[in-house]
Write a protein that binds this DNA or RNA. Structure first.
Lengths: 151, 151
DNA sequence: TTATGTGCAAACAGTTTGCACATAA
DNA sequence: TTATGTGCAAACTGTTTGCACATAA
């Protein structure tokens, strides 16, 4: 989890306040979890982290806070059939690497491809098309520890 | 639903048999539904179609058959947090347009972009990376009938 | 004849909702 | 003081599983 003093956490706090929302201790902890460096946590993972500081927190509060931040455009929801993940650092769509073995999700920088995707999005028959580009494979760590599977 | 005489249905039947699987009336109906022209049906949609011919069919049978075809590489599963969709016509990954209003899913031909995505997939730190590229927007039909929403 | 497939119903996981209570501002 | 937020528990959705029965080959 991030420190409450992290730049991104401070930014989220400021924007919540600016939008007329309150800052509870639970919320602050959720913000810290969402702004984590290794990010893309699940609601369950955020819940577990927050619970370490606030044993009485409920999952509903985690979902409520995420919903608020989503509406403000400060959190990107990555929907997966295995459970959604959240990115509280970069809320604009960007490509990801998804490990089908351990579930790890990494950002990947592919600027040229990103531009091509964005350009294509502007010329589709669907209005206001938002792209989603993910790559599903085996991460380096899993490749070593589980050498015989999924290769 | 497709006719049992459709080329793709015949192909699926032949491949099931070649793999040592049986062809039940329920299965044939499921194959026809999967090979439909306007495709990308959900399990529920396939179930509803098949039920018209076989009122006693169960959802489990639909999922079982889909699972078998997935393992054979004859059906592409498109996982969405709102429920999975299936493509029994073209089982290799390809981009889609997803209407966030009515749920309609269309194939979209973007050959140049597709090549760029496939090329990128080959140079990622994750092994055997399979790309998934979808665009979420409002389809032309929804744009007309629901002019004030999501625009 | 018998391995494969089917139908039912229960279990599961992640998410959402309703409502009384708590609290930040 | 009071609108906003919280915690709990129940409900919901799509999917998966176990098991006895049915049937294609």
């Amino acid at each position: 989890m991030q420190e409450p003093s992290s730049t991104r956490v401070q930014e989220l706090v400021a924007r919540l306040r600016a939008a007329g929302h309150r800052l509870t201790p639970q919320r602050l902890a959720i913000l810290c979890s969402l702004a984590r460096g290794d990010a893309h946590p699940s609601a369950e993972a955020i819940f577990a982290e927050v619970r370490a500081l606030h044993p009485m927190v409920s999952l509903a509060t985690v979902y409520n806070t995420i919903e608020t931040l989503k509406e403000m455009g400060e959190v990107l929801e990555l929907q997966f059939s295995t459970g959604n993940r959240y990115d509280g650092r970069l809320a604009t769509p960007h490509p990801h690497l998804v490990c089908t073995h351990c579930g790890r999700i990494e950002d990947v920088a592919l600027p040229a491809l990103q531009s091509a995707v964005d350009a294509a999005a502007r010329h589709l028959p669907f209005t206001a098309a938002v792209p989603r580009l993910d790559f599903y494979g085996i991460c380096p760590a899993c490749r070593e520890t589980a050498p015989l599977q999924n290769r």
